[in-house]
């Protein structure tokens, strides 16, 4: 082998060695990059998933609180308005009772009839009717031909009447106050339907 051939062979050995070394380093760098990329991805995924669940909880808590506070505000506002209606209605009822309007007289007559139906019976000797002092004469004129003995008693009420037997076992409530209280649940719904539809409530 000539010295040129030997030199060429030596060059070839080193060219291959360099090539191999370069390939080894390049592959190592790629693997290293892959390892880091995988780690970053795992961290990111784990953060994202725990962050998302934290965010969901936070959102539910904070917005849930705002919504329930908002709903409470609406309920309060509606309740204020409904109470205003009841207060105004009570003024009107007082005025009806004081003026002894036709509607009030009819109401009193019906109340009396229903009270008699409810309270009187074969075992009842006397029916006691409780009413506002200003209504006693009016009621007295209505019970002139009553089929049962009746006694009138003065009571503190805006209007209407309550009635009971002597022993207080059968009682009929038809004072304005008691009728208003009894009707309030239904009236609240009717008032709400009348007032709050169309106000974005």
């Amino acid at each position: 082998m000539s010295s040129e051939q030997l030199e060429a062979l030596k060059e070839e050995i080193w060219r291959r060695a360099r090539e191999r070394a370069e390939r080894i380093l390049k592959e190592a760098e790629m693997e290293a990059e892959g390892i880091l990329e995988e780690a970053r991805k795992r961290v990111e995924e784990s953060l994202r998933s725990s962050l998302e669940s934290e965010k969901t909880l936070l959102r539910r808590r904070m917005l849930g609180r705002a919504l329930s506070e908002g709903r409470r505000m609406l309920i309060m506002a509606k309740s204020e308005v409904v109470e205003k209606v009841f207060a105004r209605a009570l003024e009107k009822l007082r005025s009806e009772a004081e003026s002894k309007s036709e509607a009030y007289r009819s109401f009193l007559r019906r109340s009396l009839e229903q009270a008699l139906d409810h309270v009187s019976g074969p075992d009842v000797d006397e029916v006691i009717v409780y009413a506002n002092e200003s209504d006693l004469d009016l009621i007295a004129s209505m019970i002139e031909n009553a089929p049962v003995s009746m006694r009138l008693e003065r009571a503190s009420m805006i209007g209407g009447l309550n009635a009971s037997d002597a022993g207080g076992q059968r009682i009929y409530y038809s004072s304005i106050e008691s009728r208003l209280e009894a009707l309030k649940p239904i009236l609240r719904e009717k008032i709400a339907a009348m007032l709050f539809r169309g106000v974005g409530a």
Binding site: M76, V85, K92, R110, L183, L187, I191, F196, V199
Partner: peptide, 29 residues
């Protein structure tokens, strides 16, 4: 919600009167 509550409180007086009349009618039957 505050704005909605304000709109509710600002319901006109004539509607309050109408509702009160309804209550009177119901109570007096």
């Amino acid at each position: 919600y505050r704005a909605r509550a304000e709109r509710i409180r600002a319901i006109p007086e004539e509607l309050i009167e109408k509702a009160a009349d309804l209550v009177v009618r119901e109570v007096l039957g």
